[in-house]
Every structure is written in structure tokens, then in C-alpha cells.
């Protein structure tokens, strides 16, 4: 222990071993992963995962920049690793292949808010209640979600009437007379991203449960 070079050698070897284990080997194992062809929840054959469309991909950048990952995870654990499946947060556990096209996988480490791995599927054909971004408590009482009103703009109502996108705000939240609050481009991108979130496709390593067992996401 008293020899400097021996100490350095031991330390470098220790660090290198764990670097090899956590960086090199996973890269070897997963770096060449490719999309698969499989059935989606509706039973149609699709290539999965697919890269996100333009607006959703831009929304991903908004989601990442606002640090939503601080409170929202995007991963579904298997049934013996928590209640994720029982809560209806997904049809199956998520696997490495699900994140193939994410520039940075936003797995998350905290669930101060619910998991969003399948949020788009939970929304289904409903459109995302965008007021939720403006003031979460208007949609979910007691929500602790951070409000992001800077993704909206207040503007005078145009001559041809209020915009169809204007938020329906009442009482104290309502804008001044003659004005309306509408989502900016970034808010619409974020909404598109949230709609794109879903992992319900059959994969060899994580098959979807048979249709009769599948609980519809709540």
C-alpha cells in the first residue's frame, strides 16, 4: 500500500473494471438493437418502435428542457417489481428496445407525478387537456405539477371571433375582457409528444398479454 505506482494501478484497475461493466458491455449487448415487426394493441402489424413525427419530436425537446423527468418516470416495471401494471400504467413492462429512438431516454428516478410511458395511449382518442399545462389545479384538484403558463400567450380576441384553441378559463383565471389565452407552438408540440407516448406493441422479449387479460389502461 505504500508504493504510489501500485496504489494507482489498483485504483485504475478497479475503475476500469466497473467502466467496462457498466459502459462497454451494455453497449455491446444493446448497441445494435433494431426495431421489430409485431402486432400493436389493436392487432395490426407494425414496425416498432418508430421514430417520432416532427411535432412530437420537438415536443420531446420541450419536455426535456422543462425537466419534467424530475417528477415523471417513463418506464413500466414487471408485475413483481411494483404496482405499475396493476395501476394500468402499461400493458407490459418496458424493455430496452422501447427507447431505441429517444435521443436521451427519460426513464426518470422519481414519481411525484404518475408514470407517462403510456400516457398517449391512456388519452386514446381524447385530446390532451391542454389547460393542464396552463394551470394543473384547474384539471386535477390538489395537483403538485408545475404550471407552465409561459407556454401560453394572452392576446386580444381577433375580429373573426375567439380562437378555437383558446382556453376555457372561468372566474379569477379568466383573461381580461376582449382577450383570450391560447397555447403557443411549444405547448402544442408538448401536447403532441404526450400523445405519442405509448409502448403497446408486441415484442419477442416483452409480449403483450392476451387480449382478454389485458386491462384497458385507466
Amino acid at each position: 500500500m505504500n508504493s504510489g505506482p501500485l496504489l494507482y494501478f489498483g485504483l485504475v484497475a478497479t475503475l476500469a473494471a466497473s467502466w467496462f461493466g457498466f459502459v462497454v458491455v451494455p453497449h455491446q449487448q444493446l448497441g445494435a438493437l433494431q426495431p421489430e415487426t409485431g402486432a400493436n394493441a389493436a392487432g395490426t402489424e407494425v414496425i416498432y418502435p418508430a421514430a417520432r413525427s416532427g411535432e412530437a419530436a420537438q415536443g420531446r425537446a420541450v419536455y426535456q428542457s422543462l425537466g419534467c423527468v424530475s417528477c415523471h418516470s417513463q418506464q413500466v416495471r414487471s408485475e413483481n417489481n411494483g404496482s405499475d401494471l396493476a395501476r394500468g400504467w402499461g400493458h407490459r413492462r418496458t424493455v430496452a428496445r422501447d427507447y431505441l429512438f429517444d435521443p436521451t431516454p427519460l426513464l426518470g428516478v422519481s414519481r411525484l407525478g404518475p408514470d407517462l410511458a403510456n400516457y398517449g395511449e391512456r388519452l386514446g382518442t381524447n385530446s390532451f387537456p391542454i389547460t393542464r399545462l396552463y394551470r394543473p389545479t384547474l384539471v386535477v384538484t390538489n395537483s403538485t405539477c408545475a404550471a407552465v403558463p409561459f407556454l401560453f400567450e394572452e392576446r386580444p380576441i381577433r375580429r373573426n371571433g375567439p380562437s378555437p384553441e383558446a382556453l376555457a378559463l372561468k372566474g379569477d383565471d379568466a383573461p381580461a375582457a376582449g382577450k383570450e389565452v391560447i397555447p403557443t407552438l411549444r405547448a402544442r408540440q408538448l401536447a403532441a409528444y404526450l400523445h405519442s407516448l405509448g409502448t403497446s406493441a408486441d415484442l419477442p422479449e416483452a409480449p403483450l398479454p392476451p387480449a382478454e387479460d389485458a386491462n384497458a389502461p385507466k
Binding site: 457498466f22 459502459v23 453497449h27 444493446l30 448497441g31 430496452a96 429512438f101 436521451t104 431516454p105
Partner: peptide, 14 residues
């Protein structure tokens, strides 16, 4: 030179 998908998450955890 980001690696793909969850390999990043493992490296970030490390």
C-alpha cells in the same frame, strides 16, 4: 458521442 437508448441511462447511473 451518445450511445443508443438505455445504454445512456446505465452509463449516466454509473
Amino acid at each position: 458521442f451518445p450511445s443508443r437508448g438505455v445504454v445512456q441511462a446505465i452509463a449516466a447511473g454509473w
